[in-house]
Design a protein around this nucleic acid. Structure first.
Length: 566
RNA sequence: CGGUGAGUGGCGCAGCUUGGUAGCGCACUUGGUUUGGGUCCAAGGGGUCGCAGGUUCAAAUCCUGUCUCACCGACCA
């Protein structure tokens, strides 16, 4: 490709709206342009990378025995009503009507369509197991699109669905997909981790997420420092704390000045946040649909884990935290000063909160606190908090570390949630109808592009891993318009490399060398060949490696052999 | 949806407090200059100041409404 025929679209300045480095660089390098919130056009360089990522995913899925299909983006509402998700999914599901006023959705995922397909096409156990996948556009009307392509509303996803007679067969395919995902991320040269995950709205039991590690990641991941344990912080169980014993110190009360922070108040009382309790009021769940509220009690240094909380029987899902007015009304005082020991609401205490003795907590009147309080009777307890660095690993080996990750893949053992609801089954060996069990396996293809940049960049721009680079080699002739021999050499090398099947970006613009160097580094082309008068006197050109910065001189005749070996 | 902030050439911004009919840098065009790391000089093109209404002799500027966008929270590949 010649830059003169190409749409390079690099820019010097970073748009103000781009917060994370991958978003900034994707715009500056001319990979994407925003059309509207969460909607992006892929420019030529971006599309090349996106296609590279998709190709690797496709190759590895095929190798694993999955079969590619392509389903529609627009899906009839009846399928969603049949699965129950028409009501469950909420506003993230974009619903549209056609000219006959029939309801449709823009597919955020394809369990319904694939299940509908398989129930009509697959009738015998002999056709199983079957793993079908597609690489296709999804639409989710995200509440808050952000970070450019990282969380767009429209995005490219690889989604695969497997169908089985029984769970052990499902487990085998799940293992294969797990290994396939590892291969995929390894091939792309990404630093990733597979972690135990919550299966969320998709449903099912066993589930792993694949995260690309990056400081800007939206998820926190907990790792054991001495075993292979890794889980999303949402899922990692917190250790049960040993009950403390009260020293018998007398209970006193103290009043907090409204200008004093809680932490300062704690230390003024000779305590710390890990010796104090806080109350959070959340919406409860009851069988008769009556409005109920529950007070969750945590240690003040801990944070509430909403995934754990909403799994409690007495708590409504999704987790709804009461507004300050509502909480004040329910508790009879500001929630900060609420007294968990004499609470008007049902109390559920986190294990470590229940284990405390001689703690600080609200006294039930504004700005008044109890010092050296103790539980009078043991409260209902549960694991409610996020694990923290230093907590004991749930597998009993070592302590946890917390790192941040970008979720780029998620695999689930779905079970029969959809096949049951949508009556998807086959005749078994014994001639009986048998409902199938399913797995589903997603990869955020477009998100990988952004995640790869988060992990591979420097102050000059993107540094693509070779397998997903938009071009392998940048060919940079300096002052070609003034030197016939530079022009001839550049054209010859371009021809040789192109004949070899190497993707070359030949910068034939009439630009100063600095401009070309900067653009090629911004775009992140992994290898450059620089042609200049100085070296041409010795029939040589310069090679430069984008990642290492290593430079070396090559004989003009040796260029194609050198590039082939890269 | 709640909280915060912003909308002025393609991008980044100033002007708004104290109304007087739009400016700077980058990018773009032309000429010259320079030529191994975003040269320099000159001359140009491009904006109904998000939209609608109001106040006023006069509105980018003041008022009202509305739309859009970004950031912080609950969802997710």
């Amino acid at each position: 490709m010649r830059t003169s025929n190409y749409l390079l679209s690099t820019q010097k300045e970073t748009p103000a709206e781009a917060e994370v480095i991958s978003h900034q660089l994707m715009i500056r390098a001319g990979m994407i342009r925003k059309l509207a919130s969460g909607l992006y056009t892929w420019l030529p360089s971006g599309l090349r990378v996106l296609n590279k990522v998709a190709d690797i995913v496709r190759e590895e899925m095929n190798r694993a025995g999955a079969v590619e299909v392509l389903m529609p983006v627009v899906q009839p509402a009846d399928l969603w009503q049949e699965s129950g998700r028409w009501d469950e999914y909420g506003p993230e599901l974009l619903r549209v009507k056609d000219r006959q006023q029939r309801d449709f959705v823009l597919g955020p995922t394809h369990e319904e369509v694939i299940t509908s397909l398989v129930r009509t096409e697959v009738n015998s156990y002999k056709q199983l197991p079957l793993n079908l996948y597609q690489i296709q556009t999804k639409f989710r009307d995200e509440v808050r699109p952000r970070f450019g392509i990282m969380r767009g509303r429209e995005f490219t996803m690889k989604d695969a669905y497997s169908f089985h007679l029984d769970d052990s067969c499902l487990a085998k395919t799940y293992e294969v997909m797990y290994d396939t995902y590892c291969r995929i991320f390894e091939r792309m040269g990404l630093d990733y981790r597979a972690v135990i995950a919550d299966s969320g709205a998709i449903g099912g039991s066993v589930s792993h997420e694949f995260h690309v590690l990056a400081a800007s990641g939206e998820d926190a991941i907990a790792f054991s420092d001495s075993s292979g344990y890794a889980a999303n912080v949402e899922m990692a169980p917190a250790p049960v704390a040993d009950a403390q014993v009260s020293s018998g110190a007398p209970v006193t009360t103290a009043t907090k000045d409204s200008n004093t922070s809680l932490d300062a108040f704690y230390s003024a009382q000779g305590k710390q946040a890990n010796q104090a309790l806080t109350v959070t009021v959340v919406k409860g769940h009851s069988d008769d649909d009556a409005e109920t509220w529950v007070a969750l009690v945590l240690r003040a240094d801990h944070t509430l884990n909403s995934v754990k909380a909403e799994k409690l029987e007495s708590v409504a899902a999704p987790l709804t935290i009461a507004s300050e007015e509502k909480a004040t009304q329910l508790l009879g005082c500001n929630p900060l000063s609420a007294n968990p020991l004499e609470c008007k609401l049902p109390v559920v205490a986190d294990y470590s909160a229940a284990a405390l003795a001689d703690f600080i907590c609200g006294a039930g009147t504004a700005d008044t606190y109890l010092i050296n309080a103790n539980w009078q009777e043991q409260p209902a307890t549960a694991d409610l908090r996020n694990v923290e660095a230093g907590d004991a690993s749930p597998d009993g080996e070592g302590a946890l570390e917390i790192k941040r990750g970008i979720e780029v893949g998620h695999i689930f053992q779905l079970g029969d949630k959809y096949s049951q609801a949508m009556n998807c089954g086959v005749l078994s060996e014994t001639g009986k109808h048998q409902t199938l069990t399913m797995g589903c396996y997603g990869i955020g293809v477009s998100r990988i592009v952004a995640a790869a940049i988060e992990q591979n960049h420097d102050k000059f721009g993107i540094i693509w891993p070779d397998p997903i680079a938009p071009f392998k080699v940048a060919l940079i002739p300096m002052n070609m318009h003034k030197s016939q021999r530079i022009k001839d050499t550049a054209e010859a090398i371009y021809q040789q490399l192109t004949d070899l099947g190497v993707e070359v970006l030949f910068d034939d613009r009439k630009e100063r060398p600095g401009v070309m160097f900067n653009d090629m580094e911004l775009i992140g082309v992994p290898h450059s060949i620089v042609i200049g008068e100085r070296n041409l006197d010795n029939q040589q050109v310069e090679y430069k490696n984008r990642r290492s910065g290593e430079k070396q001189l090559l004989d003009v005749d040796a260029v194609s052999e050198f590039v082939r070996a890269l």
